[in-house]
Design a binder for these strands. Structure first.
Length: 423
RNA sequence: GUGAGUGUAGCUCAAGGGUUAGAGUACCGGACUGUGGAUCCGGUGGUUGGGGGUUCGAAUCCCCUCACUCACCCCA
């Protein structure tokens, strides 16, 4: 490999990116907030592998979904198994539940997870090939109250992050018994009005007539507005579930918009489907999406166990969250001379044992350069160790914000620092 | 997968067929040798994304390719 190739290969691959320390701080804040909120609802973390058998997503996510048909990172491992970098999290949780018979155990089947997902899309604003999701799943709760619970939980997190300009879209996509009836009715009408549809939608009429509702063309929209809606086809059970779900949202004071044409790209949803969108993003405006999937566990050969969950996109969340990094407090060591360097190491070791963050850089500098450096990297305190300090056995510490300077032994300074920190 | 736009110093950008590709900022050093943020001076830093072509001459024009950005699509 020559230098050019080396240089070329030394960039992050398309659709992936580095999260540098400054930004990583924000990620840590968001992740910590999410975790603490989910734990408030007694959700527990469940970590599954990044890599799974390809079949898991073909069966779970759906063989006809876009995600499975064209967006998966799939390859054969050295044992000849077809494996896939997970494009979403739900199938993994379902697999874990069945594999470990979690349904037979006592703890609540309420899970969350934060981690990377992979989809081979064309990257654009708010869309990456490796992206991160906050994922929440609940199993074994039929009650529509839980549908509202997770929506409320999502809102709590969004509120805490200062995300404004959001809209919650809700719908019911029916169940095994009522959805096919609707599908047939819709396809029939769509096929009857083929001449009023654009070529794209003519294809959709046969393949997936629901998508016609999404067409941007005015003529198609006008035609589609005469089409039947799922809401009119729901069976009694689904209708009741949907109405109760909405009444719980009202109970929580969450405003929403019923969007009868909302269908999600994953094949497995039943009854409740929802999406939270923001006006502060570009065209990739969904920051949260989820719904109920009452048949998936059974279809995987597991017990009769309903499920519901949502996923939030961390990159999108971060781009609209109003948070600022907490200022990191640390002590910068300004030492002069070899002996002072050693003393710095001793003092730093002591202060760290007291829980005080210390930075000793191994570079000879004049005092002025030390201060300039400390200021540059945002140190709150500068600890000075030079000839005078060594001979007097006292250290000096300067508060970089107030410019006040204190003198004392390491023990005395540690007390000052911990006092200030707890304020 | 389709379409459009953009690639010049670590970052933000100039130079629009004509010397040795510049500036601000950042970084290092000095003015200032025990006290930061300011000012002034100097220095490091570039195969102009990569490859090919046109031309006496290309950062500039053409083709290919890669990457980024935005949109379609899809979705978080």
């Amino acid at each position: 490999m020559n230098k050019d190739q080396l240089k070329k290969g030394l960039t992050a691959i398309k659709g992936t990116r580095d999260i540098l320390p400054e930004e990583a701080q924000l990620w840590q804040i968001v992740e910590a907030m999410a975790k603490s909120i989910f734990e408030l609802y007694a959700y527990r973390e469940l970590r599954a592998p990044v890599i799974e058998p390809t079949e898991l997503f073909e069966k779970g996510t759906g063989a006809s979904s876009d995600i499975v048909t064209k967006e998966m990172y799939t390859f054969n491992d050295k044992g000849g198994r077809s494996v896939t970098l997970r494009p979403e999290y739900t199938p993994s949780v379902v697999r874990a539940i069945i594999e470990h018979r979690l349904d037979l155990q006592g703890f609540p089947l309420r899970f969350y997870y934060i981690g990377p997902m992979f989809r081979y899309d064309r990257p654009q604003k708010g869309r990456y090939r490796q992206f991160h999701q906050i994922d929440v799943e609940v199993f074994g709760e039929k009650d529509p109250a839980v549908d509202a619970e997770i929506v409320e939980m999502a809102h709590r997190l969004l509120n805490k992050l200062g995300v404004g300009n959001v809209m919650t879209l809700v719908n019911s996509v029916g169940c095994k018994s009522c959805r096919p009836t609707y599908g047939q009715a819709l396809r029939k009408v769509a096929l009857e009005s083929l001449d009023k549809l654009c070529p794209d939608c003519q294809r959709k009429a046969e393949l997936n007539p629901l998508r016609i509702f999404d067409c941007k063309l005015e003529t198609c929209q006008k035609t589609a507005s005469t089409f039947p809606l799922i809401t009119d086809f729901l069976c009694a059970e689904c209708r009741e579930h949907f109405e109760k779900f909405l009444s719980y949202l009202d109970f929580y004071g969450i405003s929403y918009k019923i969007e009868p044409t909302l269908v999600r790209g994953l094949d497995y949803y039943t009854k409740t489907a929802f999406e939270i969108v923001t006006g502060d993003l570009g065209s990739q405006n969904a920051i949260c999406g989820g719904g109920r999937y009452d048949d998936m566990v059974k279809e995987f050969g597991g017990p009769e166990l309903c499920g519901i969950g949502f996923a939030m996109g961390l990159e999108r969340l971060l781009s609209v969250a109003k948070i600022s990094p907490a200022r990191k407090n640390f002590v910068y060591f300004a030492y002069m001379g070899e002996e002072a360097k050693k003393e710095s190491l001793r003092v730093a070791r002591y202060l760290r044992s007291k829980g005080i963050e210390c930075l000793v850089e191994f570079k000879d500098r004049g005092l002025k350069a030390h201060f300039s450096r400390a200021n540059k990297i945002g140190a709150n305190w500068v600890l000075i160790i030079g000839e005078d300090e060594l001979s007097q056995g006292k250290l000096q510490i300067k508060d970089m914000v107030t410019s006040k300077q204190h003198q004392g032994t390491a023990e005395e300074l540690a007390r000052i620092l911990t006092d200030k920190r707890s304020q």
